[in-house]
Design a protein around this nucleic acid. Structure first.
Length: 381
DNA sequence: AAGACGGGGCA
DNA sequence: TGCCCAGTCTT
């Protein structure tokens, strides 16, 4: 097979297929670079079906770059709640502010300029430039690498930066004259709808005829990808601290540190329990009393005296690099502390909330689900 | 080059 | 329940 014929066939057939079969997605109804940008950032590591409602809410609350630039960060974080990788939201707002100041409110249309913006890497730069401005830049994401590795039978490990640069060069060559935006979206659409990770739908593929992996019976083996390391386990103990008096019906939450995991999000007070990796389930359960004192000691250092009342539930949550195994215990405030905890001594990163106040604070999903379940059960009883 | 950084879907 | 998905920034 002559490679140049194979490439030309791919580009023309894929583009034609896309223009007939493209899904009607919210961000495809606009050429507004700002909206395209938001959608591309949300779509990083996130499925289309998940992003759609977030996208609608986001552009309704922040219809213009100016509105996003002027918003408090916590509002942006709240709109991102549950979407994950929260630095995406902070970087997006920071970059939008940069566009307001440095580029007179116009999203840059050159690779050099747009790539300097926070959170805009090679993929997002190419996606915005091609989709919003029809510039012939490649936009290589996981879908694209899967499609190209199969069609051209590329057996390099796609996790390697070198493979990525090979893919970018190839993807750029394939862009048909004047159709960068549609072609780049066509590549991703094919990867999402037809050339799927497992059991690709070759029989409906518009470019099956010249697909090298299909010819070689290799479509299920590609792309080659080194497996990620399993997440390390962490054992944690969390407290649902019930208020009394003025705070009756409320529980205590706190804000996470400025940097690191789930930065600036709100959570239930909790502590890591220093068990070894070898700790068995039984050992952990038996160790709950010791874990509780570990947590209450930490809270006492913050002038919050609590008393464990009852076990609530176990909660597990897996991040890409950490697995949390968390026991959740309902606590009351110690009476002796009650009289002195009227606000002056409570650190400001702590906050009493009830069910109706949840919308004022952004929580990671693991705590959002826990709190909703707690408030729901309390309402039942 | 390797690790940090969330959350969800599928078999 | 276990496996898969995978952009950008930092170290």
């Amino acid at each position: 097979m002559d490679t140049s014929i194979q490439k030309h066939y791919f580009s023309t057939h894929l583009l034609t297929w896309y223009r007939r079969h493209r899904r009607d997605l919210p961000w495809r109804r606009s050429r507004n670079p700002y909206y395209i940008w938001i959608s591309e950032v949300m779509l990083q590591q996130t499925r289309v079906d998940t992003v759609i409602p977030y996208f609608h809410r986001f552009i309704e609350r922040f219809p213009t770059m100016e509105s996003l630039a002027d918003a408090p960060e916590e509002d942006v974080l709240k709109l991102w709640e549950g979407l994950g990788y929260y630095s995406r939201a902070r970087n997006l707002q920071g970059a939008i502010r940069e566009v307001q100041e440095r580029y007179a409110g116009k999203v840059p249309d050159t690779l050099e300029e747009i790539s300097t913006l926070k959170g805009v890497g090679p993929y997002t730069a190419g996606a915005v430039l091609s989709i919003a401005y029809n510039k012939p830049e490649p936009a290589v994401d996981g879908n694209v690498m899967r499609v190209l590795s199969r069609y051209f039978l590329i057996e390099e490990d796609i996790m390697k930066p070198k493979t990525r640069s090979i893919m970018e060069k190839l993807a750029k060559e394939l862009i048909p004259e004047g159709a960068a935006g549609d072609f780049n979206q066509a590549l991703m659409e094919l990867g999402a709808m037809v050339c799927t990770p497992r059991s690709p739908h070759c029989l409906t593929c518009p470019v099956m005829e010249h697909c090298s992996a299909r010819d070689a019976g290799m479509e299920e083996e590609l792309p080659v990808k080194k497996k990620a390391k399993p997440p390390r386990p962490e054992y944690r103990i969390a407290a649902i601290i019930e208020g009394s008096g003025d705070n009756a019906g409320k529980v205590l939450i706190r804000q996470r540190p400025q940097e690191g995991l789930l930065a600036r999000m709100w959570e239930l007070p909790h502590a890591e329990v220093p068990f070894t990796y070898e700790a068995q389930e039984q050992t952990v359960l038996q160790a709950i009393p010791a874990s509780i004192s570990l947590l209450t000691d930490q809270l006492a250092e913050e002038t919050i005296g609590v008393c464990p009342e009852r076990w609530f539930m176990k909660a597990e949550h897996t991040f890409s690099h950490i697995h949390w195994d968390m026991q959740v215990v309902v606590c009351s405030l110690e009476p002796s502390v009650l009289s002195t905890s009227s606000g002056m001594l409570m650190p400001s990163r702590y906050q009493w909330v009830d069910s109706s106040m949840m919308e004022q604070f952004a929580f990671p999903n693991v705590f959002l689900k826990l709190l909703n379940r707690y408030f729901q059960e309390k309402q039942m009883s």
